[in-house]
Structures are given as C-alpha cells and as structure tokens.
Write a protein that binds this DNA or RNA. Structure first.
Lengths: 223, 223
DNA sequence: GTCAACAGGATTGTCTGACATTCTTGCAAT
DNA sequence: ATTGCAAGAATGTCAGACAATCCTGTTGAC
C-alpha cells in the first residue's frame, strides 16, 4: 500500500482563475476608484460567461475589493481617509503582534528568506520602480506574517493590506519614502533576527506609523 | 439647494436574502460540521435558481462559513482545535483592543444599551436556554465593538466570531459557564462604565481566556 | 473472503439564452 | 434653465442543458 500522499492537486477551476485575474487587475490599480465595472465587458475580456463572472464578483465583494450596489452593479470602492485610517489602525494591531510573535519563533531558514526579501527591497528602493518597491515590501511582510504562528492573523492581514493597496503605490513614490522605509524595515529585521520580541514590536509600530503618515501626505497632495 | 439626503433605501435583492438565510442556518448550527450541501436541494428549499444560489455560496465561502472544493461542492468546514485556537487568539487581540477603546469613548446613551444587554444576558444566564445566552452575549460584544470607534475592528471581529459560533453554543451549556461568564462580563461593563481603559482591557482578556478554556473543555468532552 | 476494476447515478462546473426591472442619458417641452 | 419623458443600457434572476468529475454498489478475480 503506497502512502496516502494527499497530493490531490485540486484542479484550478475557471472560477478561481477569474477571481485571481480580477483581483490582480484591481490590486494593480487598473481601475480608477469609483469607476463601475460592466459585467458584459468583463465577460468578453475574461472569456467567461455571465453566471461565472458574477460568482467571481461575489467573492471579490466579500473581500471588499469591489462593491455591488443592487441595480447598479459592481464598482471599485473609493476609500475615504477615515476608512483608510481605520484600516491602518487595525493593520498596526495585527502587524505589530505578528512581528512580535515572529521574533520568538521564526526558523533559521525562514529568517534567511526574510533577509533575502529585505535585500530585494533594498535594490528596488534604490531604483524608481515604485511597483517593484510595493511588491518586494509586500513579500517582506508576507514572510513575517507567515511565520507568526497564527494563520488567521495572516489571513486578516492579507485582507486589510489588499484594501489599502491603492495608497501603497502612491505613498511609496513620495520622495525619500522608499529609503526611510528601508531603514525601518531593516530595524524590524534586526529585531526579529535577534529574537527580541519587544524590539520587533516597537520597530514594527514605528514603521506602520510612518507608512500611515506617508499615505496621508500622498492622499492630501494627490487627487 | 436641499441637503443631499442620502436616503436611497437600497432594495433588498433575492441574492442578499438568500445569503442571509443561509448564513443564519449555518450559524444556528443547522448543518453538521463536515456535512456537504447539495446545490439542488438548497435551491428548492430556498426557492432560488442555481446561478443565484451559487452566487450566495461564493459570498459565504469568502466569509469562510463554507468551503467549496472543486468538483465536490460546498460543505460546512470542520474546525480543528488548532484553527479554533488561532481564531480565539486573534479574537482576543481584537476584542481587548475594542474594549479598551470603547472605555474611553462610548457615549452615555450607548452605555445604557450596554447595561441593558448585560441585564438581558443575566436573565438568559439564569435560564437554561443556551441559545438565548449566546444571542444576548453576542449583543453585548456587538455594542462594545460598535463603539470602539473603528468599524474595521468591528468587521474583523464579526467575521471571527461567526467562524467559531459552533463552539459557543456548546461551551455556554457547560455547567456554571453562563454564571461565570456573567461575572466576567459585568467586570468588563464596570470598567467601561468607569472609563478605565486599562481595566477594560484586562477584564476583556480574562473573559476571553476563560471562554477559550471552556470551548476547549466542551470540545474535548463533546463529539 | 478480500481486494480491485467497473458501470451507473449523482453532483458539480459552466455555458447559452432569455426576460422583467431598474438605472441612465439625451431630447423635448415648458 | 428646469422638468418630464422615452429610448437604451445594464443588472437581477431564471430555465435548461451538457460535459467532467466524483461517489457507490456490484461484479469479478485471486
């Protein structure tokens, strides 16, 4: 009897791919906030039928990446600064906790991954590619959240970050923001590497406060 | 120019009602964990077509109230104790924060509502109606979360609590649990009424730890 | 008797097409 | 310029269909 390797590769359905494509499109800022999404257009663009598309839209609605108003259809929500602030606050709560937990339990091999992702961000930070900056920074957090020992914390964090992804690109392109971000992230990394839970929390908190401030500035100046 | 009264009463669609009915059915424990949901059955029971039902299911899937495995369809997830623990931990993080914030900002009128809901729980606690106990206790938390000044915190909390609703009924029916729960909740109330943020956090934390312990006991003994 | 292959039924994934309801927009009339 | 209306566009919902996949009970082989 061969060991029951639970390798049942769950077949990717059209549904999942549709959701993924749409999510990616939204997160990468393809649609303007407030703009409406037309079902028939999306159907032809994505090559799926309307029922399938609507299933995908419901998933994204539950993730709060789109809003569906009855009889008006799906649209990209325009985040107010108040909502964004509320999200940043909860994100701080979650991320600080995760950083602290991570400091006392990350395995050595994952720590190396964290260092790598920090290097990747360093490289991106010295360029002007703000998309690369956002992506590599997201990698950095992901590793921390993945090693905090609590998958729910990770899940909640992912949901929150997705909803403010719109700001992140803008704030990262503020002059000097990437460099100071790098310094803050390095602090977080050093604390985690040292296994210093308290320091990790502090560093994480500092970083979040600055990121929030940068987001506010970029919002006030832009649009 | 008259003030823009945003009174557009959004019409309730069949979709929303379907989701609500299903969610209620799940939360009230109508389905056994692990049991599968048959689309065609649900369609006839709810009186909706399959495309509509599937939209509703996607919403619930995103809320993690059901799982949809490709080619196997929707099912009620069977929560492992590890997952439940993870959820309780994040819930503690969120609820403690909310209680603390609430203590320093709840308006007098809402405080009275909180007191009322505490009385309601007191009455339920002295009965043997564990459903009423769970419901009134949920009211109590809801008021706290609604007055913590951060709607996102409230949203996250609701999502977490929904996922462990299965345990709550069971643990509340443990002998003596309702009464000690009452004492803990009264402590929380007193702290909030006194505007003592620190005490509110502590009381909330104590309550959560005990609730978690009760859930564990009921899980080990039950099933 | 136990285990493996198989056939049939059940269920899901997805599509097409349709129609009533509701929103939007442009035009006409005052 | 504002109001009212009508045509068009878009959504909400349904019915029905069919292939792909899963589950189950039966048959057959050892």
């Amino acid at each position: 009897m061969r060991p029951d390797l639970n390798l049942r590769i769950s077949p990717r359905t059209v549904q999942q791919e549709t959701v993924d494509k749409l999510r990616l499109a939204i997160l990468s800022g393809l649609f303007q906030p407030g703009s409406r999404l037309i079902e028939s257009q999306l159907c032809t663009q994505l090559g799926v039928s309307r029922p399938s598309l609507r299933e995908a839209l419901r998933s994204l609605e539950a993730e709060r990446l789109i809003e569906i108003v009855p009889n008006r259809g799906p649209a990209i929500p325009a985040l107010s600064w108040e909502e964004a602030t509320a999200i940043y606050e909860v994100r701080e709560l979650v991320e600080v906790e995760a950083a602290g937990r991570c400091a006392s339990r990350i395995p050595a091999e994952q720590l190396r991954e964290l260092e790598k992702s920090l290097s990747a961000f360093e490289e991106a930070a010295s360029s002007n590619d703000s998309l690369a900056q956002v992506m590599t920074a997201a990698d950095f957090y992901s590793i921390i959240l993945a090693n905090c020992g609590n998958p729910i914390l990770e899940e909640v964090h992912r949901g929150l970050v997705a909803r403010i992804s719109f700001f992140r690109g803008r704030s990262m392109s503020l002059k000097g923001r990437a460099q100071s971000s790098l310094a803050e992230m390095r602090e977080i990394y050093e604390s985690i590497a040292a296994g210093d839970e308290k320091a990790a929390r502090k560093a994480s908190k500092r970083h979040l406060l600055k990121a929030k401030a940068a987001a506010k500035i970029s919002m006030d100046s832009g649009v």
